[in-house]
Computed example of a mutant assay.
Amino acid sequence: MKKAIITGGTGFVAGHLANSLINKGYTVIGTTRNCCPELHFKETFEILKINYDDVDAWKRLLDNFRPDEIYHLAGQSSVSESWKAKVSTINANLVNTINILEAIRQSEVWESVKILTVGSSEEYGHINDLNAITERTPLQPISPYGISKASVSMLARQYSKVYKLNIIHARPFNHIGPGQSLGFITSDFAKQIISIEKGLQAPIINVGNLEAQRDFTDVRDIVEAYVRLMEGGIPGEVYNVCSGQPKSAQSILDSLIEVSCVSNGIEILRDETKLRPSDYPCYFGDYSKLKQETGWEPRITLTESLKDILDYWRTHIK
């Protein structure tokens, strides 16, 4: 039976990943800095509180549990929040990664364990054309979050080449799916729509920039890509995880309203506080490298994902 550690174990992606791994027969431990919120995951998913600054504590965990795989998901995941909390974003995403990789390097499992570091499409930052972004696209991050994740990818490459750790780096584009917290586009829209459905909110939806186009992939497809990368990815390499299809925020909102129970009479208001200091009009990826080496392709349609997100909020808004 394989063993896996998922850092950031109480997060949105970690819950879906843990369920996927457990269904495949893994023993899973999740780690968190703040223990422990109510979880809606399998009871066999153990959560441990750990100080992410404590290299010795990480080393003890690795030597005792002896994982086959480590999925490093922990960090600050909001681009907009990174503009308000630059130092804590760098600490959460970069410094904590250094501590974990140092612990792995010093552990008894350093030769055998497979490690997935998770970056972001925000690493690419400013792009010079409107073509699909490949792994060869230069990194020009423009947000504090993007800078932190680009630094993680460089760190992963260094530890792979210098210390021979088995590290693969994933660059996922926009995640969506049931269970995602507020502060992300589909959750923000869906919560407002369901509040209108339940009569808890006037038929008005506050939005940011609706013209921007992004590449959206369901979280359940994304975690399957992570598992495939552990099985067939090449250590030291970087892989985009995306749908390859740009969709505007306007089309996402229209689709959510269309499949809801309040498809008429909603007023859309622009909220200036939801705009980012810097943005780009169209941003989408190319996942052909991931497909070629692992066979992965996205399976869940956008419509299916949006319906599941609405259903999630229907059960969580009382």
Rank of each mutant, 00 (worst) to 15 (best):
M1L: 10
K2F: 08
K3D: 09
I5H: 11
F12I: 08
V13Q: 05
H16M: 03
H16G: 02
N19T: 14
N23E: 15
N23Q: 09
K24E: 13
R33C: 06
R33P: 15
N34G: 06
E38R: 00
H40K: 11
E43P: 04
E43I: 07
E46D: 13
I47M: 08
D54V: 15
A57D: 12
D63W: 00
D63E: 05
F65H: 01
F65P: 12
D68S: 12
H72G: 11
L73E: 11
A74M: 10
A74T: 11
A74V: 09
G75M: 05
S77Y: 11
V79F: 01
S82C: 07
S82F: 14
K84C: 12
K84E: 15
K86T: 13
S88N: 09
N91M: 11
V95I: 11
I98V: 14
I98K: 01
N99R: 04
N99E: 11
L101Q: 00
E102G: 04
E102T: 13
V118W: 03
E122D: 14
E123C: 12
G125H: 08
I127P: 14
I127V: 10
N128P: 09
D129Q: 09
R136W: 13
T137Q: 07
P138M: 12
S143E: 01
S143I: 00
P144I: 15
Y145C: 00
S148C: 10
A150N: 06
L155D: 11
V162Q: 14
V162E: 10
Y163T: 10
I168Y: 04
H169M: 04
N174P: 06
N174C: 10
G179T: 11
Q180N: 09
S181H: 08
S181P: 05
G183A: 07
S187P: 11
S187E: 01
Q192G: 00
Q192L: 00
I194P: 09
I196M: 04
K198E: 01
L200N: 13
Q201V: 03
A202G: 06
V219Q: 05
I222E: 14
V223F: 14
E224L: 15
Y226D: 07
V227G: 04
G233Q: 08
V238E: 05
Y239E: 12
S243V: 11
Q245M: 13
Q245K: 12
Q245N: 14
A249I: 05
A249H: 14
S251R: 03
I252K: 01
D254G: 06
I257W: 01
S260F: 04
V262D: 02
S263H: 13
S263P: 01
N264V: 10
E267A: 02
E272Y: 07
R276V: 09
P281F: 03
C282V: 05
T294L: 01
T294I: 02
E297D: 13
R299T: 15
I300M: 08
S305M: 05
L306C: 08
D308S: 11
L310P: 00
L310Y: 03
L310W: 01
I317L: 07
I317Y: 00
I317D: 00
